[in-house]
Amino acid sequence: MDSVTSEQPVRSSQHLAPTVARSVKVLVVGAFGVGKTTLIGSVSEIEPLRTEEVITTASVGVDPVAGHGEKTTTTVAMDFGRVTVSPEVALYLFGTPGQRRFWDLWAGLADGAVGAVVMIDTRHLEDSFEVLDQLELRTTMPFAVVVNEFPDAPQYPVERLRAALDLLPSTPIVKCDARDRTSAVRVLVALVEHALTFPVFQKVLA
């Protein structure tokens, strides 16, 4: 593992500009293979990076050395990218599998997020039910639903998707080609516009 360190020296061009003093993040969630990394890569100014967290199922508060045999480990990967949106502000996009139990593995991943982009594959709509339930029941996070247009995927009118996914009338549903930068940026614009309508963002914090 430590060899990775010396193989990937950070080029100074990958540092943020010295004026950047603020970061915000958006979560990009969705089922396996739905296009999370592609969307992040389309927007990011750096090659998407990857980091992994390894969790032993009985890890929290338990001596990890004891009871070796009964433990199983789960590796959860997070892909992410970044885009400097103003001289002072960098936006980070963190892509992770949709289920809330995966984000909980990352300390602070959901905390303070502007919102989430939920990527949907119309060939497997049911795969998105869990993440939508989690977002609605367990967070107050704004989210936008993104329908990645795969060539062989059924094309539904937006309002039919809204009904099928039981989304509020105000929740943005955006069709997108995650490979296209303009299309991917439009998704983020829709999410941030939507977030700005949330009461929590109405007050200017000192």
Partner: peptide, 23 residues
């Protein structure tokens, strides 16, 4: 460099900068 208080959300001001920047 950027201090995040626990559970604090970005301010409206920052979100507007993000939106302008994205556009």
């Amino acid at each position: 460099r950027s201090n995040h208080q626990a559970h604090a959300l970005p301010s409206r001001d920052v979100l507007e900068k993000v939106l302008d920047g994205l556009r």
